[in-house]
Design a protein around this nucleic acid. Sequence first.
DNA 1: TCTTGACCTCAACTTAGCTTTAGATTGCAC
DNA 2: GTGCAATCTAAAGCTAAGTTGAGGTCAAGA
Lengths: 147, 147
Amino acid sequence: MLGPEKFISIGQLASRTGVAVSAIRFYEEKGLLQPLRTSGNQRKFLRSDIRRVSFILIAQKLGLALAEIEDQLKNLPEGRNPTQHDWQKISRRMRAQIDEKILLLTRTRSQLDQCIGCGCLSLQKCQLYNKDDRLGLKGPGPRAVLD
Amino acid sequence: MLGPEKFISIGQLASRTGVAVSAIRFYEEKGLLQPLRTSGNQRKFLRSDIRRVSFILIAQKLGLALAEIEDQLKNLPEGRNPTQHDWQKISRRMRAQIDEKILLLTRTRSQLDQCIGCGCLSLQKCQLYNKDDRLGLKGPGPRAVLD
DNA sequence: TCTTGACCTCAACTTAGCTTTAGATTGCAC
DNA sequence: GTGCAATCTAAAGCTAAGTTGAGGTCAAGA
């Protein structure tokens, strides 16, 4: 029968995930994907790489950098297709990160509420912006300070 | 009496906010700060610029880009020192943004929970990663898709 | 006066996360 | 076998948010 092929091309992976072909090559370069090659040197991906790319996208939305995402993906088995169980473990870890993020935002919000009361928005008085927070909730921000 | 000076230097602003001098100049270049100059061409800032910089830092933590922060700051009066009331208005707007962020994260979390149940983490099945979300919760992610 | 630290400008460099471009294959369809 | 889209590599370009460096000026104290 004409069942689905075992491997998919870069173009297929791109259209299935909505990610540009160039971005997929870039992810490979960064070590997030490890496609095989055809005899003609074209990349061939496992079907499970669709899920892998989905994971990359979701994790990015949560603010993880590609390097951090790579770390998470290291927990997936090399070579063989990850099982449902493999993905569950990794998902649970992500849930913890979301929890943490929500907590930080909630704290920030209540601090801001206090500031709305007094209208101060000042570093000294509010503690809304202090060094500890700085390390917690990350964003761009001046670099020197982050070191 | 020796009351506090009306203006502060760039170095003072830097040490009061914890932001590098180079970053402050950069913010000025981007239009986020509009210091006056001394006869010797050195920048002189209003004391209220400390608050302004604090705001920039806080807003960055919430994921706003400098351009967006500039938009918010446009709501502050030019020239005169912002009043407590001015800051309150702007703070309330920020609170709304935090609320929205928390909402999005909460939604993402519950979707992820469903995925943990099935272990799928797939685009089609879970809807954890769809285009609507993509616009909502922003992050890096492939550019083409964002257009 | 001299020196020293804070300040000035302008240009180039940095990191992350990609996209774009150019020129060379590959592979499928007719 | 001819054509055309999809793929390949390598290098350059882009945006955000700054930092770094070179070379010059300002201001205040000894």
